[in-house]
Design a protein around this nucleic acid. Structure first.
Lengths: 230, 230
DNA sequence: CCGGAATTCAAACAACTGTTTCAATCTAGT
DNA sequence: ACTAGATTGAAACAGTTGTTTGAATTCCGG
């Protein structure tokens, strides 16, 4: 069906994704795309029809990298706290990626969030909603007595914390300085956001007001995230 | 100094702000702006020089609405928790505004965050940083023992929660349905985000989980207390 | 090797972009 | 009323945009 190959259509889609993610729909030009893809200018019309259909296809293409969360890591035997930790870490991995090839996928999704196009329905249905319901399930396990409204708001609280480092990255970096911002790496932010949210939900110790040193007490990598000797 | 008047320059700036906020820099056209402002096409060149300078001026203009937080509400006698609550509420008021005339100010700032232009330096220096340091001061009062890194991350956690409702509004609405989304109004979100964050910081009861008494009130001036206890 | 379909290519198209020009008009100051 | 400056107006400019065309080329089953 789709292209792992190096066909013109696939290169076009990849180039379009990067260009659209970087400059937006209006900012990106077909000529820049076909140059990046080393294709002819008529190729986009031949393979996709017009610029807008190419954009929609690029957004849809950026999905495939988004649905790989499910099989990867979730272990039903893990505690809700540990599952949340894995969820946050996986989310942040994509959010903090800027150099690798997958970076434009998330960037394009962000643009689609800010200014939904015809592709947004598909985007929500096939990518965002599955992720969202996964998080909702984790939170419901963690807080069995919370009503749905509270679960939704809490999900948005967690997603919002993660996405902020994607959305406001340039501004945040300028705000606190490059050095301080560089210190907020994947490990630290995973610990912080997980700990912050777990404490908010009543699981685990509060953040920051430690009587001890400031290192977050949640275990760092694939260990159990839950229990911790304060 | 500037225009409360109805001069062409002022109308141009207002129209440009709306148009830029809605369509982005590349998407907005000068002709659409001058049509909205009922001005001639040469006016933008005469008053501002070119399109980019007009954009920068529009971004700068959107500041004036942003610095009014300081004098308004903060009472040094309030507790840190109460100050945080006012901060969050004030932030959310702007974030959730979509219909009123000020809505494009925030929208434009969001665009500037995603894709900083020459105006971002001024934006950070004169608007964002003052707000940010105000929040940092509140958090430092709340958590005197937290180091700066933790304070920064916690600030971003709070800001991220609030901004998410601006950034992802169309997607979030489609995600949970219009009715459920409409339930997340200013009052509810203020309670939720404030409670969520205070609990995370170790002040106040956790959110949503019934294992403890979720009614334990945090002192709130504006009337109702903690989040709705079902 | 042949022949038809699929694909690529260079060139040109019309529409729209931001910008400029210069004359027309309006607005004080005298 | 007159004039100098500020502002507005309509038209045209050069450049770029997305799109189309039709021939040239490649690909592949017979």
């Amino acid at each position: 069906m789709s292209q792992a190959q190096d066909t013109t259509k696939a290169r076009l889609l990849e180039a379009a994704g990067e260009e659209f993610a970087e400059k937006g729909f209006e900012g990106a030009t077909i000529r820049a795309i076909i140059e990046r893809a080393k294709a002819n200018i008529a190729a986009v019309n031949y393979h996709f029809g017009d610029k807008e259909k190419l954009y929609v296809q690029a957004v849809i293409e950026s999905h495939r990298c988004g649905v790989d969360m499910e099989p990867v890591c979730m272990n039903p035997a893990d505690s809700a706290a540990e599952q949340l930790r894995l969820y946050v870490r996986h989310f942040l991995e994509r959010v903090l990626a800027i150099d690798n090839r997958d970076s434009w996928h998330h960037k394009l999704m962000i643009r689609e969030m800010l200014q939904p196009s015809h592709a947004s329905e598909t985007l929500v249905r096939e990518v965002i909603r599955p992720k969202f319901e996964r998080l909702m399930a984790i939170l419901q396990r963690a807080c069995p007595e919370a009503d749905e409204k509270r679960l939704i708001a809490s999900s948005f609280s967690i997603i919002g914390q993660c996405l902020h480092y994607k959305m406001a990255r340039p501004i945040a970096e300028r705000l606190v300085g490059p050095d301080a911002f560089a210190g907020l790496d994947l490990d630290y932010l995973t610990d912080h956001i997980t700990g912050f949210s777990l404490a908010a939900l009543g699981i685990g110790p509060p953040i920051g007001c430690g009587d001890r040193d400031s290192r977050t007490p949640v275990s760092t990598s694939a260990g159990n995230g839950q229990g911790d000797p304060r």
